[in-house]
């Protein structure tokens, strides 16, 4: 039988209990220890991306972005080198945002976020008016860190037929298409520690670009003759070696990516862009000079032969532009 006494006592107890319960959630929700944790993880991830060059499993590969297997990447830092924070390597950035190479979230979880807790995250790089990102857009509550960075630019050696200073082939007797243009790339000159990291060219990690604009005028070929790119030879210390890691664009259309297709002659109407890509275990050493010869004729006799060196005095490096790297974690 329920007495009035029991009812009164129990009511007082329950009322007090409700008051106490109502007091609890307020500080609990305001604390949101998870948010603090998200911020800390975002901060750490931002530091790894912006201040660390990353690390592959094998010490033979000094850089992770050249690894063939995503599982071989221990840490994905984007900095060009240790000690140069804020300067991101374009090759690393391209690899990092390559969705065909890394799978979200597993690969990033393993070598960027770390830890057992399955955080969701989004990394976005806003640079030169475009945004590249990894991961879905964040929900309402997330931890975020914003870092200011610059992305290093690719160097290029530009020869322009319309520029009167680039008159290597402008010889009075030279009225044929028999031309050879040789670009010498002295690696020891390029890999110079005294050059600012933002402008240093390292053929082991950076692509090298050779651009010939207005090629007919540049090669001094009369209007009624066709310009034919017959062959590209790549040599190390003067000895020709097989090397296929380059791309060739003519008027911005990629035409050749394999060595053998080059053997057939092609017409070259306007601008030619040659890019030498860095590869793991390249067939040259740090002290070597690489020479790239463009042969615009199948007649080796009487060909006009010009040599240009690819170094800090001749190449053009566009000014690096700042960007914003954002890491959101939830």
């Amino acid at each position: 039988m329920v007495t009035i006494d029991f009812l009164v006592g129990f009511t007082i107890f329950i009322s007090a209990f409700i008051i106490v319960v109502a007091m609890v959630p307020h500080p609990l929700f305001a604390v949101q220890s998870a948010r603090i944790d998200y911020d800390a993880v975002a901060y750490r991830t931002g530091v790894i991306l912006v201040e660390d060059p990353g690390m592959p499993t094998s010490p033979d590969f000094p850089v992770w972005e050249q690894q063939i297997d995503p599982g071989e990447v221990i840490r994905m830092g984007l900095a060009v080198e240790r000690g140069s924070p804020h300067i991101l390597s374009p090759a690393k950035v391209d690899r990092f945002f390559d969705r065909d190479f890394f799978t979200y979230p597993d690969d990033y979880q393993r070598s960027l976020i770390f830890g057992d807790y399955p955080y969701s995250f989004n990394v976005t790089l806003s640079h030169k008016g475009t945004q590249r990102s990894v991961g879905p857009p964040p929900p309402e509550q997330f931890g975020v860190v914003r870092r200011v960075v610059v992305v290093k630019e690719t160097s290029s050696l530009i020869r322009d037929g319309a520029d009167s200073a680039h008159n290597e082939f402008h010889l009075p007797e030279n009225l044929t298409g028999d031309q050879r243009l040789m670009i010498e790339i002295p690696c020891p000159t390029l890999i110079d520690r005294s050059v600012e990291p933002l402008f240093r060219i390292d053929p082991r990690t950076d692509p090298l670009q050779i651009e010939v604009r207005n090629i007919r005028e540049y090669l001094n070929v009369p209007v009624n003759e066709t310009v034919v790119l017959h062959e590209i030879l790549i040599a190390r210390q003067g000895i020709t070696i097989p090397f296929a890691a380059y791309t060739l664009e003519i008027d911005e259309d990629e035409v050749v990516s394999l060595d053998d297709t080059l053997q057939t002659s092609r017409m070259v109407p306007g601008n030619l862009t040659f890019t030498l890509h860095p590869v793991p275990n390249p067939p040259w050493r740090q002290a070597d000079t690489i020479a790239i010869t463009f042969i615009f004729s199948d007649n080796p006799d009487g060909a006009d032969h010009q040599v240009i060196t690819y170094d800090y005095g001749t190449v053009f490096i566009p000014p690096a532009e700042p960007g914003i790297l954002e890491v959101a974690v939830w």
Binding site: V20, V24, L28, V31, S33, I36, D39
Partner: peptide, 24 residues
């Protein structure tokens, strides 16, 4: 019992606060 539960809960919560604060 409820009083003890509140005490324990708050102890944990204040630890979490501390972690965030010390990180920053």
């Amino acid at each position: 019992l409820i009083s003890i539960a509140i005490l324990a809960l708050m102890l944990i919560v204040s630890q979490a606060t501390l972690v965030g604060q010390t990180t920053a």
